[in-house]
Design a protein around this nucleic acid. Structure first.
Length: 298
DNA sequence: TAACTCCTGGGC
DNA sequence: GCCCAGGAGTTA
């Protein structure tokens, strides 16, 4: 699950090969990923030039000169490889290498660009998907219409958290994972942000709003820590998990910045805290937190 | 809110 | 063989 920082890293890595380039030949090695490819997918791409490569939450958007936008979601294990004409292979934002890196079995889409570069989409678990929608109505498309605010934008602050979470009794962690409220966070960065903010993952989300709807100090703190952890992770090129030591310099480094994720038993790094990192399960997913400095009030 | 679903593979 | 995995939709 590439989260926002990983997708942003992929966007930056893919841009040089994609923006301004023309799709010469698009080959699909199977009829679907998570969903079937759009009708006439290859034909609608071939001959088209990419005007710009953007990102919304965990989605990549490639605006084409045909008036359509190619939407790409990496799911849990999607990745791109770029092979340049001189034979050099790059892995823009290589965040999830598994054992299958370079295993052509999972090369599902091969895009030969007019420049001579080849962009390959590889996705072991096939939870990713691609779609083509009219650029003019991109924001109204089914993927984006109900999507929440962008966490690195000015839209996210304590007041926004109070407004979005008010009256909600759902656990804070679940609220932060709800892409209809804030879009782009996933399991790792939610755990990290909650730890940094000193908030228990099970705290009812509505506790961050005062009765009059204004933000509590903790709401402001949480907004600040979400931005901080995402900004640091983007700067580090995202996180690379299950790294099988490939000869490739394009991997992220923020996994070294984790304070709680996948760190059960480690000493808490919060200032003055003597706790250890624990794991609990919330709606079927692992939550990592410090039992000492992330306490439930009362 | 929780369980279950899609899918493959690593680790124990 | 079982549990786990950075996502997210659907269903009870």
């Amino acid at each position: 699950m590439p989260e926002l920082p990983e997708v942003e890293t992929v966007r930056r890595g893919l841009s040089p090969a994609l923006v301004g380039a023309r799709f010469a030949r698009v080959t699909l090695n199977r009829p679907d990923l998570r969903f079937p490819f759009p009708k006439n997918f290859s034909r609608r791409l071939e001959g088209r030039t990419v005007l710009e490569l953007g990102r919304r939450a965990k989605y990549l958007t490639a605006a084409l000169d045909s008036g359509e936008t190619l939407i790409m979601h990496l799911g849990m294990s999607g990745r791109f490889d770029v092979r340049l004409p001189d034979g050099v292979t790059l892995s823009p934002g290589d965040f999830y290498l598994e054992g299958a890196l370079g295993n052509a079995k999972h090369d599902h889409v091969v895009m030969a660009m007019g420049s001579g570069a080849t962009i390959t989409y590889n996705d072991v678990r096939r939870f990713g998907f691609m779609d083509l929608v009219p650029s003019a109505t991109l924001q109204a498309s089914k993927h984006f219409a109900a999507m929440g605010i962008e966490p690195l934008s000015e839209a996210l602050d304590g007041a926004a958290i109070a407004r979005l979470f008010r009256h909600r009794i759902t656990p804070l962690k679940a609220a932060l994972l709800d892409q209809r409220l804030i879009a782009g966070l996933g399991n790792i960065y939610v755990c990290e942000a909650l730890h940094r903010a000193g908030l228990h993952p099970s705290l009812p989300a509505g506790a961050l709003a005062k009765p009059d709807g204004t933000p509590t100090p903790k709401a402001k703190r949480l907004a600040k820590e979400i931005k901080a952890v995402l900004t640091e992770a983007v700067a580090a090129g995202g996180s690379t998990l299950r790294d099988y030591a490939q000869p490739d310099g394009a991997r992220g480094a923020f996994q070294h910045g984790f304070r709680v994720y996948d760190s059960v038993g480690h000493a808490c790094t919060a200032k003055g805290c003597t706790g250890r990192i624990a794991r609990m399960v919330q709606s079927g997913r692992s939550t990592f937190y410090c039992e000492v400095c992330q306490v439930l009030p009362g």
